[in-house]
Amino acid sequence: MSAALIVPLSLVGGYAVLSVVLLRFPLLIHRKKQTKINARLIAHRGGAGEHLENTITAYKHAMNSGMDMLEIDCQITKDKKIVVSHDDHLERVTGVDKFISELDFEELPLITQSLPVHFCKGQTVCGSASDRKIPLLQEVFETFPSVPINLDIKRDDDELIHKVLDMIIEYKREEITVVGNFSESVVQKCHKRAPQIPTIMSMKTAFKMLGAFYVGLLPFLDFEEEFLEIPMGRELIKSFDLQKRWQKALLWMLDFLLINSVLFRHLQRRGIKVYVWVLNYETQWDRAMSKGVDGIMTDYPVKLAEYMREKGHWQDGQSQQNSDNYHTFDNGVEQQTGTSK
């Protein structure tokens, strides 16, 4: 073999060996991220398959069911109030053809009594006649002072971002609230204004992470974010009954590349938690658990809690411990049963 080949082959071989070693032992060059959020069971929009999404009633039900965390979304009204809603446009959840940003808080219509479950095609949920209002984020923080919250800031709006972050700090929730968005801009603005608040990888960062994994560069990259939250592409095909071949092919490829236990384990060794969304069926939960994810987001808190108990993924008494750590709610009345974290 000529010297012209020996040198580049040696460099490539050395790079490959170093990459494999650091993939397995990333703490040789990275400091492990530390967060106080250790949630496995996450109620998507508060449990949108069992109560009207993003309502206080849904949140109370989810926490009584044994969930560890609430996943919610926020928007800003015309009079600059921060409210909890996935959609800015009100048609889907209220039947009113208006944007939240066009109305003052007091003008917001009530949520309809029946809503489709977004990630369960053909399923609907009926809600409580007594709680159909879109809540203020402040009300959620005051009602659930020690419950971890996964908060999606839905718009790249500086005033919305600043108000949300300032409210998290005001309520001393920096250690139990994680914020983010698909948008890289939103995540970077959160980092800049409140670097002490944990964040979720944007779509751009997630794809950068994925590409780096397959070329061996991932162990050498640093990330500001503490959470990776991703869909399982195969499950999205089922949830939305997609018919177009290119959509199915794209999601299958994404699933094949992204749902990888080796990738997840590397991130977890670095203190980056991996959550998957939105999974509503036992077969989906089986697959997620087999891949070693940290947490599952679901629209069905009761069903997921029962599954975790039956499969032995949940220690006896863990549900009670979750409730004791937060609050329990009986017929809508809050009762303090433990100390805040």
Rank of each mutant, 00 (worst) to 15 (best):
A3R: 13
A4C: 10
L5F: 13
P8E: 07
Y15A: 14
L22H: 03
F25W: 11
L27R: 14
T35V: 15
I37P: 08
A39D: 06
A39C: 12
R40M: 03
G46M: 01
G49V: 04
E50H: 02
I56P: 05
T57N: 08
H61M: 02
H61I: 00
M63S: 03
S65M: 09
G66A: 07
V84E: 05
H86K: 04
G95A: 03
D97C: 04
I100R: 07
E102V: 01
D104S: 14
L108D: 02
P109I: 00
L110K: 15
I111V: 10
L115I: 07
L115Q: 14
H118D: 09
G122F: 09
V125S: 13
K133Y: 14
L136F: 00
Q138E: 15
Q138N: 11
E139G: 00
F141P: 12
F144I: 03
S146E: 09
P148N: 08
N150V: 00
L151H: 02
I153Y: 08
D156F: 08
L160Y: 02
I161H: 01
H162D: 12
H162Q: 14
E170N: 06
E175P: 11
T177F: 01
T177K: 02
N181M: 05
V187P: 04
K189W: 01
K189Y: 06
H191W: 15
H191P: 04
A194T: 05
A194E: 01
T199C: 04
S202L: 07
G211N: 13
E224Y: 12
L228D: 09
I230N: 08
I237A: 13
S239W: 04
Q247L: 12
K248I: 15
K248A: 06
A249S: 14
M253L: 14
M253C: 12
L258N: 09
I259D: 07
F264Y: 15
G271K: 09
V278T: 14
L279M: 14
E282N: 10
D286V: 11
R287Y: 14
V293S: 11
I296F: 05
M297V: 00
D299Q: 10
P301W: 10
M308Q: 13
W314S: 12
D316L: 07
G317C: 01
Q320S: 08
Q321A: 14
H327T: 03
D330G: 00
E334A: 11
K341L: 04
